[in-house]
Simulated assay, not measured.
Amino acid sequence: MTDILEADPPKKRLDGIKKAAILMISLGPETSAQIMKQLPDAYIQKVSYEIANMDHVSREDREAIVNEYLEMSQAREYILDGGFDYAKNLLNKALGTSRAKEVIDMLNQIQLRERPFNIARKADPQQLTNLLLGEQPQTVALILCYMQPDKAAQILVNFPPEKQADIAERIGTITNTSPAIIERIEQVIESKFSTYIENDTENVGGVSTLVEILNQVGRTTEKAIVADLEQKQPELAEEVKASLFTFEDIVSLQKSDVQKVLREVDHDALVLALKGVSDELRDFIYDNLSSRAVETLKEDMQYLGPARLSAVEEAQQSVVTVIRRLDEHGEIYIMRGDQDAIIE
């Protein structure tokens, strides 16, 4: 079941958690409840949140997700019966060459995540090289067999020439290895690698990460999270709010920067984004457009009619996304918290 949470076929481009939520909705509450019990807590929370915030599922999406789940389940059974070649042959007959390839590719990705030496595949090549330089050639060869070819090549070239040949020969002659040996080596490598990098930590999370996430969610969710932080961790909430850019914050931009943003924003998105905003904000936008553009914008807004809050928030978020992109590329400047102002 967790496969459908992670695999993402090329054509659908749906988030894995959304796909799982759609599947749960399609299967009904009783069946979904039984499936939920078998999922890790982290997935249950994510899927439950997605279900709670999903107010509409198109028939096309529902059918596509259910069909994908059935195809994946069927393909797994074929693999268990006779391996990938057997599964590929049957899937080609059942689904056609193109769709069969998509399913096989997804299963290959899933299998890759389940293969031994996962920590090695995720590790930085240079760090892993430093660790493996002291290992026996047969150990290095075994690990490289389970790694991505390009990363394995990066590691192999760092060994002395004579050791490269020894490792290459062993890779070429490995046919099978006891699972117990693989597991034992994997445990040793993971233990050594965790010790090796214990002082080489990676910066993850924190206010900047939270702000990046909040700048991508809908305004309703953003406001609810910030309000909750204000109750539980007021100092963190203030820090987040100082860095968080909202659609209304567009008035804090320089006039020239606003004009750059508006040139990049889709016209229809801007029409929808201005639905229900204050007169001051709307006038601010008008002041940064040509008279002809303002006339067109007002006309389109007049004929827009009622709009869903979620659609308006999505349009506003698309404007914020443009602003963040231009800021990251240094094309405009966003004031954040106590940062110094720009002197022109």
Rank of each mutant, 00 (worst) to 15 (best):
E114V: 00
S178K: 11
Y146I: 05
I197K: 07
R170Y: 03
T201C: 01
I181E: 07
L144F: 02
S194I: 01
P160A: 13
K151N: 09
N118Q: 13
L132V: 08
I213S: 02
Q154H: 06
D150C: 02
T201V: 14
I181Y: 02
E114Q: 14
T201K: 15
I167L: 06
M147G: 02
E202K: 15
E183N: 13
N130E: 15
F159G: 01
I167N: 03
K151M: 13
S194E: 15
N176I: 10
Q136I: 01
P160G: 08
D150M: 10
P137Y: 08
T201L: 15
Q154M: 14
Q136N: 14
I155M: 07
K192I: 03
E169P: 00
L156S: 04
V188S: 14
D124H: 14
P179M: 08
L210Y: 00
E114C: 01
R115T: 12
P161E: 11
T201R: 15
Y196G: 00
Q136H: 15
I155N: 02
A165H: 07
P161A: 12
P161Y: 04
Q136S: 11
P149Y: 07
D105K: 11
T201I: 13
P137K: 07
D166T: 12
C145T: 14
A168G: 03
Q187L: 11
N176L: 11
P149T: 05
P160D: 08
E186P: 02
P116H: 08
K101R: 12
C145H: 10
N176A: 15
A141V: 07
I213M: 10
E169R: 14
E162N: 13
I174A: 06
I185V: 15
K192Y: 08
V188A: 13
P137W: 05
Q154I: 00
Q164I: 14
P149W: 04
Q187M: 12
I110T: 07
Q109Y: 03
I182C: 02
I143T: 02
P125Q: 07
L133T: 09
I181H: 01
A168M: 15
Q127P: 00
T175S: 13
A100C: 06
L107I: 13
L131G: 03
R113G: 10
A120L: 02
Q136P: 00
A100F: 02
V211K: 03
L156T: 08
D150V: 12
E183M: 06
I189W: 00
Q126S: 10
N176C: 08
K163L: 15
D166R: 09
S191A: 09
D200M: 06
F193I: 05
I197M: 06
M106A: 05
Q138K: 12
N118R: 09
R99S: 02
Q138P: 06
Y146C: 05
G206M: 10
R113I: 01
T139A: 12
T195N: 14
R170E: 04
L132D: 04
D124N: 15
E190I: 05
G134C: 04
